[in-house]
Design a protein around this nucleic acid. Structure first.
Lengths: 149, 149
DNA sequence: CACCAATCAGTTGTGCACAATTGAATTGGG
DNA sequence: CCCAATTCAATTGTGCACAACTGATTGGTG
């Protein structure tokens, strides 16, 4: 409908464009709280799992320390997290959400509905997309329940 | 299967992870030619459409001049493209593929098969994914024919 | 014609991504 | 116990993305 380039036929480009578009949809919701999208993902892991090591954050988000270290430094500067060297294993660094960081969860609220609507896809299509992306990512989709954007 | 975080249920994260994974799949194929994935996308547009303006490249790839200007400068330094101010409208800059840049197309060859296989999805699933991403991107999928990765 | 708004490419500044490397801490084998 | 291999976070360097801005060019209107 828009362009007639070979790009139209490339899944990789659609994936690339869709990922950036999704980030843009989050931006207006996160900007007021001073968070970027990757920072928001880190906070979500902390809200859900509690204190975590940098190593586990990397495994979960599939990011390495080269990305996470400066990102976590910025979250610490903003007062959302606290870093602490492990006592048992001094190589690991534990990331704790601060009270400020925890309060962000309720301040930001649930974005999934607003974001799901913004895609223009039906609930069924979102579910299909979710399943396909899971398979492409080599993970198993969580079978029951809704599918947040 | 891997993590039990709320991230599992977020399409946005699956999209973000899948997009980066796809780029990683391209990397070993593009690195030997000194191209990055976004640079490869630019070259594909030039191979398909011939000389193009920076403005149209931006519309096609959904990138602004802040991203394209330095990227094109690097492609020019590598000898793959040539820039030329428009004569009719001196605001626009035309991007021409050089012979070297054109030769890249045959040198790199067709990556779609290798990439499609690497995802582990069936042809049917790739087609579904393609259609869903198109709809999410607000574009119409090109109905007939195969679906390169 | 004069002027003003819009268009276009480029620059600046911030923040990811990721390869490669560093250096400290830990682990395992002999 | 000792030392070589591994693990872990951080750092360095390159290249996107994108917001905000600049400055030149163009097009439309009075």
């Amino acid at each position: 409908m828009r362009e007639s380039t070979a790009l139209d036929r490339m899944i990789c480009f659609q994936l690339y464009a869709a990922s950036r578009a999704m980030t843009s949809l989050y931006r207006p919701h996160l900007d007021p709280h001073g968070l970027t999208y990757p920072q928001y993902l880190v906070m979500r892991v902390l809200w859900h799992d509690g204190p975590t090591t940098v190593r586990d954050l990397g495994r979960t988000l599939r990011l390495d320390s080269g990305t996470l270290s400066p990102l976590l430094k910025r979250l610490e500067t903003q007062g959302h997290i606290r870093r602490e060297r492990g006592t048992h294993d001094e190589r690991t660094v534990w990331i704790h959400p601060t009270p400020t960081g925890t309060r962000l969860q309720t301040d930001i609220g649930d974005l999934s509905h607003a974001l799901a609507c913004a895609t223009g896809l039906t609930t069924d299509e979102l579910h299909q997309l979710h399943t396909l992306l899971h398979r492409a990512n080599g993970t198993a989709p969580t079978p029951p329940g809704g599918t947040p954007a």
